[in-house]
Amino acid sequence: MNLETVLILSGIIFTIGLYGSLTKKNSIVVVMCLELMFNAVAIAVIGFSRFRPPQVLVDSDVLSPLNVLSGHMMAVFVIAIGAAEVALALALIISIYKIKGNIELTGLNNLKN
């Protein structure tokens, strides 16, 4: 377990999420894929936090929680935003369902032309 493997794992999950969000018809699956992408980013941030302290630590020997745990803080906010996003996205999906009768993204082309 080192930084490269963690980052590559993060990249793989991100790519899978991206691919899924581009190709899936079902909007719920697209939301799931977005969550995967969020998590990929969080994994990368935590990995940096664990293996690679910020440049400040390299220059000075001061170890403070601010420096070491900044990645964790990032992850906290990522999760918070992800939760908010899921709540909104599901509300939107339900609205779409009310209007269109289904939740397929392929029917949502009212902006056409």
């Binding site: 581009l22 993204l105 082309n109």
Partner: peptide, 17 residues
């Protein structure tokens, strides 16, 4: 050209990607 503006969000996302 109007196919480019087909209104599908995922197509736009694909072009972006």
């Amino acid at each position: 050209m109007s196919n480019v503006q087909n209104g599908h969000l995922q197509s736009y996302g694909f072009v972006f990607f």
